[in-house]
Write a protein that binds this DNA or RNA. Sequence first.
DNA 1: GAGGCCATAAACAGGG
DNA 2: TCCCTGTTTATGGCCT
Length: 682
Amino acid sequence: MMQESGPETKCNDSAVQNGGSTGNHLLECSLRESRSNGETPSLEASAAELAHFQQHQALQVARQLLIHQQQVSGGKTQKRNDKQPSLQVPVSVAMMTPQVITPQQMQQILQQQVLTPQQLQVLIQQQQALMLHQQLQEFYKKQQDQLQLQLIQQHAGKQPKEHILQKGFWLPQQQQQQQVTTQQLAFQQQLLQMQQLQQQNLMTLQRHGLLSLQPGQPSLPLQSLAQGMIPAELQQLWKEVTGSHTVDDGACNNHSSLDLSTTCVSSSAPHKPSLLLNPHASTNGQASLLTPKRESVSHEEYMHSHSLYGHGVCKWPGCEAVCDDYSSFLKHLNNEHALDDRSTAQCRVQMQVVQQLELQLSKDKERLQAMMSHLHVKSTEPKASPQPLNLVSSATLSKTASESSPQSLPHTPTTPTTPLTPITQGPSVITTTSIHNVGPIRRRYSDKYNVPISSDIAQNQEFYKNAEVRPPFTYASLIRQAILESPEKQLTLNEIYNWFTRMFAYFRRNAATWKNAVRHNLSLHKCFVRVENVKGAVWTVDEIEFQKRRPQKISGNPSLIKNIQTSHAYCTPLNAALQASMAENSIPLYTTASMGNPALTSLASAMREELNGVIDHATSNGSDSSPGRSPMQAMHHVHVKEEPMDPDDNEGPLSLVTTANQSPDFDPDRDYEDEPVNEDMD
DNA sequence: GAGGCCATAAACAGGG
DNA sequence: TCCCTGTTTATGGCCT
């Protein structure tokens, strides 16, 4: 009745002409499939209704995306008859990639290795967003035309015969006319409903973490939604670059719907979703709201791909609810973080955080460029890895990791996360190596140097847990940290092993090697005391011995002092710069910044610790200048809690119990020993 | 170049 | 016998 063959064929053709992207192709397949079900005239009406419904679904998503783009591009009032083909590229995208890059150009970029995988990912996502936008513009326009045409046809009653199928019976003529009017009303109601749903969907997108992107990435939900619509070449390129597990884009699985099924699906009839957003390229291990349930992809693979879920904990800002498995997490997500005022407010806050981070990043990048140009420092790694913005020399991480891992551990720049700066593009920071050292260095830091191991581990806990990167600390420092983190300040050897494997992904390999080293260090260093226990033997830390390890040299060797001071002097202005930048961008340290944002939390923590260190450093220079106490010891003094000291002991911070467990990420009430340990990985 | 620190490897012994 | 734990020695790299 609706003469649907014409417009739909046009629509399909246009979809193919637009590059045959996966998403449109899926939609087209779906539409075509639905039409194929209604070949006989008697079924034409129902088929049309089905197609209508599917179009309605597709239109919802399309409009939702367009509206978001309108909001991004200036908050223009949405018009239902938005037929303007003008491409409103989001600012963040337009700034980066004003044009769609062809696959050939992308290939060229890849061959030239100008970009890091992270940069490439961002670029690809931007490209996806652009292409999706274009496709959706066109698709949406055609859908609008088609819908209007249908409305006009219904209204004018020009159909030769109106076969309205309702409940399986043919209606009399009066009922048919009434049905037409009813349809019109329903149609208008649907259109109104669409607008409401668009808003809901948008909020759901934010709720599902789409806006909690890493700094440097455009805060654009489209990039995730667009992942199913990239051209095959880009997908292939991206597969090659990231090696990420992607799902083959051949089959259309109706279970491959969205995590936001609560809105998209529930808002419609329980039909098979016609628009499938392909969960392609869970890029960078980062989250997408897409939680495909395809059988070809293991469920656990995607457990780690949801940015709101990690290590069995809901990462919704301020939540941290423990979810045993992914399904329980989803239940929790839908129950506890449903669309309400609170979640909406949190989303807004998160949006602001992301925006501020992006702003901060851009400013700091400019500042960095100015600094580097001023210092004539050659950009360390223009195509290289995201350097961790670690107060430890980031080069140490990679250097030591690569150096002492003959098994060629994957210390690639594409590790899941990096300390403090999960994704940065280009040289994020001037490392100490790039300034002070030329060539490889090998240095590991004990607590006696300028970086408290507790704070570093606490700040980069997730990084160390996930990335097989060697921590830049000695075995002795790590062992000590493990012992001091324990409630009773004593651990058995096996518990030390467990701490290593639990805290560091690096130590989940080559167990024989590092375990031997642990035993060796325990025996070798006098600071580790073996105490016979009822259950066996436990190891404790003799802080006196630990602090005495190299006091004379540090206090007596001017070069060492200078080195430490240099390091310290380097860290302090860095944090000052960070603080200034955050202040400049009005990022409160302990409010929104720390609200579920590990990066900012870490920054704040690092700055807090560093400021403590500076204060204490100044104090120690003045009053506490006892010989044998290194500047680091003085700094460390901030992080230690003095216990009743032996009055006869004048050796400085003796009998100290570090308060490492007061680090931001440490939960003193948490029984780490009860946690599952990767014993099987040995 | 010497000395120290550290990582790694290995041998060895004792106990469960 | 095997494994775990603990000790000791040797070697090499890196740094000061």
